[in-house]
């Protein structure tokens, strides 16, 4: 599946850990199966491209780890401060 798209930010292990902490804190669950364990993927900066988004908003890719899940790809919207150190933002 092609190259990484230019808008995506690859997260470090520590950043992914912070994402999972936030998901846990917000009691996030899978839209399809209700599962609450996820693998964290890349992040997409929303603030510039999308009209309704706050300037510090990101969408972070989450994949439901339930093997029976019918739609495992989901995401969580997080402000930059909750998972990225400010210096990483591009």
């Amino acid at each position: 599946m092609g190259a990484i798209r230019p808008e995506l930010t690859v997260l470090t292990g520590e950043q992914k850990h912070r994402v999972l902490e936030q998901v846990g804190r917000k009691h996030g669950s899978c839209r399809a199966c209700g599962g609450d364990t996820f693998a964290v993927g890349d992040a997409l900066y929303l603030g510039f491209l999308f009209l309704s988004e706050d300037s510090d908003a990101y969408m972070v890719a989450l994949s439901c780890t339930n093997p029976a899940c019918s739609a495992p790809h989901t995401g969580v919207r997080l402000p930059e401060s909750e998972f990225l150190s400010p210096a990483v933002r591009t």
Partner: peptide, 19 residues
């Protein structure tokens, strides 16, 4: 023209449009 401002699109995008 501006990109689709929907959660479905954004989630698809952050997963590199595999879905």
């Amino acid at each position: 023209g501006k990109p689709p401002d929907s959660d479905d699109y954004k989630i698809m995008a952050v997963h590199n449009f595999v879905d």
